[in-house]
Simulated assay, not measured.
Amino acid sequence: MNRELDLVGARLRAARHARSLTLKQAAQQAGMSASTLSRLESGKRQASLELLVPLTRLLGIRIDDLVQRESPDPRVRRPVIQRDGLTIAPLAPEGSAIHTYKIVYPPVDTLPELRTHEGYEWLYVLSGRLRLRLGEQDLVLTRGEAAEFDTHVPHAMSAAGERPAQVLSIFNDEGVRMHTHIAES
């Protein structure tokens, strides 16, 4: 039997529980016997439109909700980007509403040039020490520290000290273009 059809009963039961309805209450309100609903939920009775339509209306769900496809593989498999000495690992799927990256900043002698762009940036230091130049401020963030700032303010980042800094960064669309775009030669 199709795996999706096998899940209809469990999804019906979950929707009924979410509405805090007993088997008897749901069956009565949907115009069927409690034993019919019990058999539907346990997979011992084949679901038909005649039975599903009143149940889905009662439970405030769509028939499509009962036969939804299985979740796709949640693993993110995107190539790591090497740019200006940085290692940028995408942590969200392509086209995701939230652009999340793990960035490794190598130790450098000179802080990169200050930049500005549209939007905001959020970051969290996983390891090492991160130098964040934000306008006139020259900050060093350590493991467990976070920052959020308007990217209209001139800013630049690098590792502080002899070791790389690993950072989780979340960008808006413009921030993604600024940080991950590989310049054409």
Score class of each variant (00 low, 15 high):
1 M>E: 11
2 N>C: 03
2 N>L: 06
3 R>V: 13
3 R>P: 12
6 D>A: 15
10 A>C: 00
11 R>N: 01
12 L>W: 02
12 L>H: 01
12 L>T: 05
12 L>R: 02
12 L>V: 02
13 R>F: 04
17 H>N: 14
18 A>W: 09
18 A>R: 13
19 R>I: 05
20 S>M: 10
22 T>Q: 10
23 L>K: 09
23 L>S: 08
26 A>V: 11
29 Q>N: 05
30 A>N: 01
30 A>S: 09
32 M>A: 09
35 S>A: 15
36 T>N: 08
37 L>Y: 02
39 R>K: 15
40 L>D: 02
40 L>R: 00
42 S>K: 12
43 G>L: 05
45 R>G: 03
45 R>D: 01
46 Q>K: 13
48 S>V: 03
49 L>P: 00
51 L>W: 05
52 L>A: 06
55 L>K: 08
56 T>M: 10
56 T>G: 09
57 R>P: 01
58 L>T: 00
58 L>I: 04
59 L>P: 02
60 G>N: 11
62 R>N: 13
62 R>A: 14
63 I>V: 15
63 I>S: 08
63 I>E: 04
65 D>E: 03
69 R>D: 15
69 R>K: 13
70 E>M: 14
73 D>S: 06
75 R>L: 15
76 V>H: 10
77 R>F: 04
78 R>V: 09
78 R>T: 08
79 P>R: 11
79 P>H: 07
83 R>H: 13
83 R>A: 08
84 D>H: 12
84 D>P: 04
87 T>M: 12
88 I>Q: 07
91 L>W: 06
94 E>N: 06
94 E>W: 00
94 E>K: 05
96 S>L: 08
97 A>F: 10
100 T>H: 11
101 Y>Q: 02
101 Y>S: 01
102 K>I: 11
102 K>V: 14
104 V>D: 10
106 P>H: 02
106 P>I: 04
108 V>C: 07
108 V>R: 14
110 T>P: 03
111 L>T: 15
113 E>V: 14
115 R>P: 00
116 T>N: 06
117 H>W: 05
119 G>L: 03
119 G>D: 06
122 W>R: 09
122 W>K: 06
123 L>M: 14
123 L>A: 07
125 V>T: 03
126 L>R: 06
126 L>S: 00
126 L>M: 07
127 S>A: 13
128 G>F: 05
128 G>K: 04
129 R>L: 00
130 L>S: 01
130 L>A: 00
131 R>M: 01
132 L>P: 02
136 E>Q: 13
138 D>I: 10
139 L>W: 06
140 V>A: 03
142 T>C: 12
142 T>Y: 11
143 R>N: 03
144 G>W: 06
145 E>H: 08
145 E>K: 00
149 F>A: 03
150 D>F: 02
152 H>Q: 13
152 H>G: 11
153 V>S: 00
153 V>I: 15
158 S>I: 06
160 A>Y: 07
160 A>F: 09
160 A>W: 02
161 G>W: 06
162 E>S: 15
162 E>Y: 09
164 P>Q: 03
167 V>K: 03
168 L>D: 00
169 S>D: 01
170 I>H: 12
170 I>N: 11
171 F>P: 00
171 F>A: 04
172 N>C: 14
174 E>F: 07
178 M>Y: 08
183 A>D: 14
183 A>W: 10
184 E>R: 13
